[in-house]
Design a protein around this nucleic acid. Sequence first.
DNA 1: GTAATATAGCTTTTT
DNA 2: GCTATATTAC
Length: 658
Amino acid sequence: MPFLRSLNSLQLKAATHADGPLLVLAGAGSGKTRVLTSRIAHLVKNKRVAPSSILAVTFTNKAASEIRERLTALIGDKTKEMCVGTFHTAGLRILQEEATEAGKKTKLTIFDDEEQLLLVRLIMSELSLDEKDVPSKMILYEINLAKNNNMGAAEYRAASDDSLSRTAAAVYEVYQKKLRAMNAVDFGDLISEPIRLLESDPGVLNKYSSRFRYILVDEYQDTNRSQYTLTRLLASKHSNLCVVGDPDQSIYGWRGANLKNILNFRDDYPEAVVIKLEENYRSTKNILSAANSVIRNNSERLDKTLWTANHAGDAVHYEECLNEYQEARFAVNRVRKIITENPTAKYRDFVVLYRTNTQSRTFEELFFEEGIPYNIVGGFKFFDRREIKDTLSYLKAITNPDDSLNFLRIINVPPRGIGRAAIEKVHAISRDFDLSLYESFRKAVADSAFSRGGVAEFMGIFEAMRQEAGELPIHEFTSRVLIRTGYLAFWSAKKTEDADERLKNLDGLVASIKNYEDSHPKATIADYLNLVALMSDADGFNEKHNKVTLMTIHSAKGLEFPYVFLTGLEEGLFPHKRSIEEESVEEERRLCYVGMTRARRQLFLLSAKNRAAGKETNLQIRSRFIEEIDSEHLNKVELEPKGTAEEHMEKIRRLLNP
DNA sequence: GTAATATAGCTTTTT
DNA sequence: GCTATATTAC
């Protein structure tokens, strides 16, 4: 088979491994995705495995569609029958299928982090908990962590031993009750609810564990306890579980990822075959050696050394810059220089990587000023904008009126005279009669509880929209909602500059929904909403545009670029201050390793001596990661120690050109 | 009782 | 720089 011929012997061994558990320890750039797709193609083409009995789980939708694309090239239309997606999409599908089976509502709403936080705050005020005593974000963090560890509210309560976790336990219990009443799930539920179904019902377990004869999990080093449990359950019948990952690239510990899942794979499956892929096909010798010299400093790791037959290439370049502005300036100059000197280099060959999203601003400003095309991935997302969130809230409330949270969000948006007092009145009804907010409002209107007609009028519009929801195409329906609710008129009436921008964004939303409908003719509003909820930052990356990419190192996982700028290499920023406080610098080092190994030809490491933080500017110390790189692979350009004159010039420059 | 306006507070990484 | 909360105006 041609797709097997291009593999090296170890890749081939992994791709053609017969039945039984398989662990592939795949270093950066060792052809991991190739092994995954070749293995699936081999199963379907050579082993005559039905595509519908294969489940492939990836970390992002982007990675899933990449696998799909590559597979379509290898095995054609059969790819459509396969189940390829993230843990969350797989979980959602199980929940929907089982709900249909049980004759229950299938339209569940997925709550994003903002909705989660809103719900936590709501519960905290009901329990008379003060934000100042216990921050809601901390409570939510605890709840999410518990869910990632597959701990239900009762189990979490039993394990809580300090005041914070006892408070969190109390909120968690109400939180879960409310989610169920609202027919909503959060990200954690998309994994833990399927687990609950599989564990409580042998019939369900038998059904899914029989269905998926072959299971493949990518980025296994970043799975958490819940994902691990779900995987184990699904693989329990056939044990044809192939997991691929690299412990050195585990960068989601803060989200509950557990390195033990991959390190202890053999404890769970003693018969597992382990294959190490240590040949890197991506980077130059210098880049790889530099990356190896950094990751070597971690104590908790499996022994593994990546090597490459590629050229030595240029030494890794380290440039110490005066400030974040000069850091961006260096990147701009270097992009220009390389593009002029090398006719094959294109803007799309470059990426600027940073630790925190806020760092993108300086780069964005300068790239814009200098006319260099760029594309920011993640960060401030289109779907995070107020006007977009409001519109989606409307759609959520209309399609799922049990969703009191989103109903509450939009009841007085735009302002229509339904304020605190009115809401509190209806809130009391919902408590007394155990009704959703929507039902309570209906009851209040029916009982003529409001003297003025504002509420009744709005409820009339809301009912009418519910009627229309199934009758119109989604994008037309969305336009109708924006008009009938007065939302469009609200922004049109405002004369501020940002109102214009918001109206444009709303047009953009309707256009993007139309786009979606054209490619998914059978999709419902709920399908669209679920898709948006499960979209990830990295999904916004488009390699077809000829632009320089700007993104966080986290988003860059799994990607590669000929030229990489790894920026902000300063103590407190990278490694981040909080990781130093929490003694999790090893994860930051892995993150640095991930960043460095994205580069194919040339790697630039940048740091700023002065960095603006809010109102003041801090003197920065260069990152320990720079010091860890063997000097033979590093070309250091440092600032003159007596840089006062230059610093002075720079200050004047900034004053003249703010 | 509700809407518009001023102020404080925060900004690690994200399915 | 931008959003949730507190204060003031209608």
